[in-house]
């Protein structure tokens, strides 16, 4: 059996008393007769990196997208259950869905820069929030580009189209763009799957820095990546949550046979 080393301090499961940021209860999602998410109940600890692991097609991305109600885009999706963020049920709350989304930055599998300049990509979210003063925008844009470690590479070409950047730079731009709406959660859907190893490393490094201020939920199917950065793991298989818990526990002491098989590499 292949062993994966986890270079983290051991957190005994009983002492895992970190405040919860997202609490999902009995979440079911169907498209017609297809049952995509089956009775999901998970919790995501605050200011940690939670990784959703599982083979392709098991509903990881759908679970992630239901957290900021991007599932609304698909009218034939039927969502029931509870998704609480800071104890507010976002699935049934009367608050504007745009306000819910502003609290979460999203990174997708491939970077999708908006069809405008680098500058405007970041100004976009700020402008939606009603910030239009030029001096303010410039200061903030610089701040977020520095935070996403992109400033030095783009400071002289802010007016160029975002698509002129390399893929790795684009992904960091998307990160900066997401941070600019001042969220407290970052949702990332296999954010490194289209990137070269060095750009991937930069994103991972960034996440480890950012977790002090943000709750990060990341979908991946790369076991090693999960082992490198996860504090907490949610393992899914065929639309169900099989196991969840601290990363150390998950990798070194898996509780179910499916998890053990997955860690061995015999499910994929």
């Amino acid at each position: 059996m292949e062993t994966l080393s986890v270079s983290k301090k051991v957190i005994p499961i009983t002492n895992y008393q970190i405040p919860k940021k997202i609490q999902i209860e009995n979440l079911n999602l169907k498209i017609g007769k297809k049952h995509i998410l089956k009775d999901i109940s998970v919790s995501v600890p605050k200011n940690k990196i939670t990784v959703i692991l599982g083979p392709s097609g098991c509903g990881k991305t759908t679970l992630l997208k239901s957290m900021n109600r991007l599932t609304d885009m698909y009218p034939d999706m039927e969502v029931t259950g509870k998704i609480c963020i800071d104890d507010e049920d976002i699935l049934h709350s009367g608050t504007d869905v745009t306000n819910i989304r502003k609290r979460m930055g999203l990174l997708s599998q491939r970077p999708y820069p908006l069809p405008m300049s680098i500058y405007k990509n970041i100004a976009y979210g700020l402008k939606i929030s009603g910030r239009r003063k030029k001096r303010f925008l410039e200061k903030r844009i610089r701040h977020y580009l520095i935070q996403a470690s992109l400033w030095d590479e783009v400071k002289d070409r802010l007016r160029e189209p975002a698509s002129s950047l390399s893929i790795g730079q684009q992904q960091r731009l998307c990160l900066a763009r997401g941070l600019a709406v001042d969220p407290d959660i970052i949702l990332a859907d296999e954010p490194t799957s289209a990137l070269d190893p060095i750009s991937s490393q930069e994103i991972e490094k960034k996440f480890l820095e950012l977790k002090n201020g943000y709750t990060i939920v990341m979908v991946t199917h790369v076991l090693r990546q999960a082992a490198r950065i996860a504090d907490y793991v949610i393992f899914m298989y065929l639309g169900e949550v099989i196991e969840q818990g601290p990363a150390y526990e998950f990798f070194n002491n898996p509780k179910t046979e499916i998890t053990r098989a997955y860690l061995r590499g015999s499910i994929n």
């Binding site: 991007l70 885009m73 502003k102 908006l114 979210g125 929030s129 997401g178």
Partner: peptide, 8 residues
Amino acid sequence: EASLSLGA
């Protein structure tokens, strides 16, 4: 999705 997730 990117645009919506920014609150648009």
